[in-house]
Design a protein around this nucleic acid. Structure first.
Lengths: 163, 163
DNA sequence: GATGAAATCCGAGTCAC
DNA sequence: GTGACTCGGATTTCATC
């Protein structure tokens, strides 16, 4: 095995045009194939084939509308640091299982450092977070400590990948 | 003023159909208008008008392809906690200005707690992060402390908003 | 193996109602 | 809000290099 693989069969390397297509789709996921083709200077047919391949091979993980959180009553963002009691594989697996069904949880990373996990959670308001905190977070298995960071200002959110 | 506003003129409330459209577009940003119309049980024309409105009024902030970070050589994710020297408005403004041009920075939040800012950074590898750390992070204005959390595993990434 | 041109089909966008 | 109509793009086919 030479190159890292995802679940897809195998990944061919990306040339200049592929990367340009990815850049355009990252900037605007609803660009028409015709628009992308013009922007990257290939025919519509070629652009279509390449774009298809980029999706099929997993270079594009998905295309999603970013919904304004405030519009759907999720205006409050909270970051949470979690420290586990014991650093055993079972502890990690348990926490990840417990957390996987939590819809309010937008992101969850296992990290090295003074925390074991960092969580990103969206709720309606601080009251809702308090409820969630009492009902789910402090009830998580094997948790020694929970550190809550209320987000006062989202300076930068979901910036495009620089490539 | 009763409701929070963005830069748009004003926001009407979202009914059941609007929210359904948003949910579908969040799940797949490349759905055709015809597909959405069928899914939410309205005519194509109605769906088109509503979707337009959702974009125009800022309920949809944007639609973006999620590019596989590994595909473009950005396989390493690092979370960083920043503590400022002094908690003055100028300190915050300075840091945000310094950080705004950093393309590797995907997210930046001003938080309440033991850190002042939390950063999410994507780089090729640890060596690249080390370079960035020496060149940018420790050179940021008014920074007392930098805490680095290397991400060992991305358990959940960019989950859809639950509504 | 890849490409681009042409040809068909279907959805976007706009109309009247 | 719906239905219809037009135009342009998506998608396939095919010849070509």
């Amino acid at each position: 095995m030479k190159s890292p693989e995802t679940k897809e069969s195998f990944m061919t390397d990306l040339d200049r045009i592929d990367r340009a297509i990815l850049r355009h789709l990252q900037a605007d996921g609803r660009l028409t194939n015709a628009e992308i083709a013009k922007a990257v200077n290939v025919s519509a047919a070629t652009c279509h084939r390449r774009t298809q391949r980029l999706f099929d091979e997993g270079h594009v993980v998905g295309v999603h509308a970013r919904v304004n959180p405030a519009s759907v009553g999720l205006g409050t963002l909270v970051m949470v640091g979690v420290v586990l009691d014991r650093s055993t594989p079972e502890s990690f697996a348990e926490l990840e299982a417990a957390v996987s069904g939590m819809t309010e949880l937008l992101e969850c990373q296992l990290v090295a450092g003074e925390f074991d996990y960092l969580l990103k959670i969206r709720v309606r308001d601080i009251g809702d977070f308090n409820a969630l905190h009492g009902r789910m977070l402090i009830a998580l298995p094997g948790v020694r400590q929970i550190r809550t960071f209320f987000v006062l200002k989202e300076v930068k959110e979901n910036a495009p990948l620089p490539f």
